[in-house]
Simulated assay, not measured.
Amino acid sequence: MLNIAVLVSGGGTNLQALIDARNRSELSGGKLALVVSGRADAFALQRAEKAGIPTEILLRKSFAAQEDYDRSLLEILSRYEIDLVVLAGFMTIISEKVVRHYENRIINVHPALIPSFCGEGFYGLKVHEAALTKGVRVTGATVHFVNEVCDGGPIILQKAVEVLPGDTPETLQRRVMEQAEWKLLPKAVSLFCEGRIEVADGRTVIKED
């Protein structure tokens, strides 16, 4: 059973998707062992506490230097013996030091079909605003490993979502979450915990059952 840490900053809807999957016995091979929040007032903390998951609050502003923050984050993850780190709306910068320490063991969910609408500056509603401005007919979500390039790590899973006439960034965001993010993230976590994801030459291979 692998220990999973979920890093959050806000409402924690993707965390809730993982909790719901766990409650349905769909989080194969993994245990939600820790939630780390970058904000003391994040509603995700309440979700974690209700679900019986230990929590830690780690504020970037409490540290003078990035390396001090990195050291504290790694110490917390080590203390809980974390095997997999899941970024679920985490708005604090993850440094190369942390990424290297957890190479191919940090995953993120991005609300678009990478390589579209990704990279620096594309987060939250900004992603959906850009999709609507471009006039795309299809968007979606991507779960990928995290590397030193923003949204540049090996892709694990993707799912397309239709853009409808009259969509606003808010309605599109909700549809992408419901139809893609909340389905893909638990599935990707389960695949990892079951040892079914291999990374070779910057690409992933999903092994059959």
Rank of each mutant, 00 (worst) to 15 (best):
E26M: 14
E26F: 10
E26N: 08
S28I: 15
G30I: 09
K31V: 10
V35K: 01
S37W: 00
G38N: 07
A40D: 13
A40R: 15
A42P: 02
A42H: 02
F43W: 05
F43S: 07
F43I: 04
L45C: 00
Q46Y: 03
A48K: 00
E49Q: 03
E49I: 00
K50T: 06
A51Q: 04
G52P: 01
G52M: 00
I53D: 01
T55M: 02
T55Q: 01
E56W: 02
I57V: 15
L59V: 05
L59C: 09
L59W: 11
R60P: 10
R60C: 06
R60S: 13
R60F: 09
K61S: 14
K61W: 10
K61I: 05
K61L: 07
S62L: 07
S62K: 12
A65Q: 14
A65N: 14
A65W: 11
Q66H: 11
E67Q: 13
D68M: 12
Y69Q: 06
R71M: 06
R71E: 15
R71H: 13
L73D: 08
L74P: 03
E75T: 13
E75C: 06
L77K: 03
L77E: 05
S78W: 04
R79H: 13
Y80P: 01
Y80L: 03
E81A: 14
E81I: 03
I82L: 03
I82G: 00
D83H: 14
L84H: 03
F90P: 01
M91R: 08
I93S: 05
I94M: 11
S95W: 05
E96I: 07
K97M: 06
K97I: 08
K97Q: 08
V98R: 06
R100V: 09
H101S: 14
H101C: 09
Y102H: 10
E103W: 11
N104K: 09
N104L: 05
N108Y: 10
V109W: 09
H110M: 08
P111V: 13
P111Q: 12
A112Y: 11
L113M: 10
L113P: 04
L113Q: 11
P115G: 12
F117R: 11
G119T: 05
E120K: 15
E120H: 13
E120F: 15
E120S: 14
G121A: 14
Y123D: 09
Y123A: 11
Y123I: 09
Y123H: 15
Y123G: 12
